[in-house]
Nucleic acid binder design. Sequence first.
DNA 1: AGAGCTAGTGTACTTTATACACTAAATAAT
DNA 2: ATTATTTAGTGTATAAAGTACACTAGCTCT
Lengths: 202, 202
Amino acid sequence: MTNFDSFFKSAFTVDNVIFGFDEGDLKVLLIKRGEEPYSGKWALPGYFVYPNEDLNNAAIRVLEELTGMRNVYLEQVQTFGKVDRHPFGRVITIAYLSLVKISKYSIQPASIALKAKWHSVASLNDLAFDHLEILSASFNQLKRSVRSRPIGFELLPSMFTLTQLQHLYEAILETELDKRNFRKKILSMDLLIDLNQTSNQP
Amino acid sequence: MTNFDSFFKSAFTVDNVIFGFDEGDLKVLLIKRGEEPYSGKWALPGYFVYPNEDLNNAAIRVLEELTGMRNVYLEQVQTFGKVDRHPFGRVITIAYLSLVKISKYSIQPASIALKAKWHSVASLNDLAFDHLEILSASFNQLKRSVRSRPIGFELLPSMFTLTQLQHLYEAILETELDKRNFRKKILSMDLLIDLNQTSNQP
DNA sequence: AGAGCTAGTGTACTTTATACACTAAATAAT
DNA sequence: ATTATTTAGTGTATAAAGTACACTAGCTCT
């Protein structure tokens, strides 16, 4: 029988692209690295998957350590596995995308969380590892997902105005939407409860 | 500095869901396993990723060893990583989906290929490992992909009739399509060259 | 009180999707 | 050789979804 030992020298991580929405802007939660490699650079939150841990659970764990949130929207994006992507050895990473309500987010005591900060997605151009590529793939997947499923709400507080929702969609899709057509479509989907309240929030 | 050695004891494989189309039926190429675990069961073709090999290249390699084909349509599907999915240890697998023209396929001399056989996708209900789940996820992704991009051609010989193409789409989407509407839509896409030939192939 | 900003609303038009039936030609059967 | 059966090929009418577009009422700020 063949000996497979030489294959069992790799590791894998999960990296979590955590999207939020605030001030009319699509944001992503990044960690400022305090150690090598890429010390001082911003990176996606992620960690090695433990030997006895399912992939999905690893993604959930990373998210919870950082934000304290559970039951958050999460989907797998893609796996990145270039040979030289990690200086410690052969490490592939499974990217996850999650959507959180920034309003519910509060900094966690875990040490990693102290270095976390929300960044506008549009403004990023230099991240640790291949994280810019991962972010970009995840953003594209978000665009696709948002067209086919009503997941946008995950990014807003539980009460919101249609205008806020529209701004969110515009931020994700990177395009302007017609106000009347947008409202017509959303309301025809029968997903929302009309609170009969009005608001002039900025 | 933390010691990460304990994480570098895992392995990963690629598994390739190779679709073909023949006799009006959507097929998938499987290998009959000749060794443990799951000896005697049918499995998706796959193998460990070599330490110096990019993920995509591993998928290409597996496909070429088996079919002799290069430049074949290939896309990553998803990564499967339950803790206990492989009896040798912690092995996660990255699933790829590929589309080949069965007419161009011929059995390769590689030993693995001798045990390969095309199976109707619809007829499968028991595969090695978690391969049934992988197949099912890949089939779903194929359904989605085929709606948004004209990749159906990849499964047919370079000359084909519109009827054949329709049968292919019906097999993938698992639904009947209206002949006139189908032709109207395909022809309006301007993707095909009309050979002005007619054929009464079965 | 006035100026400026934002929320809220309806209709006409265009594009895309769907439903549907017959003829001509080839092949198979007697 | 004639007939029966199968398959390819074609158009129109209707429904649904998407898009373009402008004004009013009410609030906020000065």
